[in-house]
Amino acid sequence: MAITVTIDGRTTSVEEGTTILHAARDLGIEIPTLCHNDAVEPYGVCRVCIVEASDGKGRAKVVTSCNYEVWDGLHVQTGSEQIMEARRTILDLLLSAHPNAKPVQDLAAQYGVTEPSYTGDPEDDCILCGLCVRVCDQVVGVSALGFSNRGPARKMVSPFLDPSPTCIGCGSCVYVCPTRCLHIVDEGNKRVLYKQDRKNVFKEFELLPCLSCGRPFLPREQLEYVRKKFKLPRKLAQTCPTCGGPGV
């Protein structure tokens, strides 16, 4: 069933279950996000995508557009004074805590925040958006990453700070990380997954060679996981993409 929703004075018709964020994109209205990626369930934690939602008459309430589903007759203000001020404060807080996180710098600059108000850690670019944790859980399905501690001490870690027994070294977490603070590098027959700098090594993998060219390319854990998951025959998954194999 189609639903009518008005965003910043412009009306559109969208499917039930659409979030404000997507309805706005349909209208070409950009709402900033830091913890959102369409590949995973919305999380609503960075809070920069806040907007004001109302029925057009009563008092508006502040909601996160990434996980708020529209309803018929919904009115949304994406840039009211209250929203702009709160967003600026949130970006200031994020930039203060993570002064070198590139997407935070860029977005904060758009909102006029170039100098953070408080001192943070220039060597901590992880903004705790949870994209790596979610992709590992929801897309890869191995839940190798999580959070430790709470409040300002919260950190994204591998469980118990040990090499995660379930991590397969696929690098999906690195791929979705918006601040590029996760890294995966291949060195000879070794693959290393780490956060920020080499002091935070999450796991090291031994790479198996390509059966055709002999180049190390595949962590054993990944091979086994993929074989099991897709019930692949033994040989199929062991040639590297360069040699025309399906890779993984």
Partner: peptide, 17 residues
Amino acid sequence: EEESCGKCTPCREGLRR
């Protein structure tokens, strides 16, 4: 600040500051 779960930015960073 000690009891905040730390999940969302305003609570985690706001209380800290």
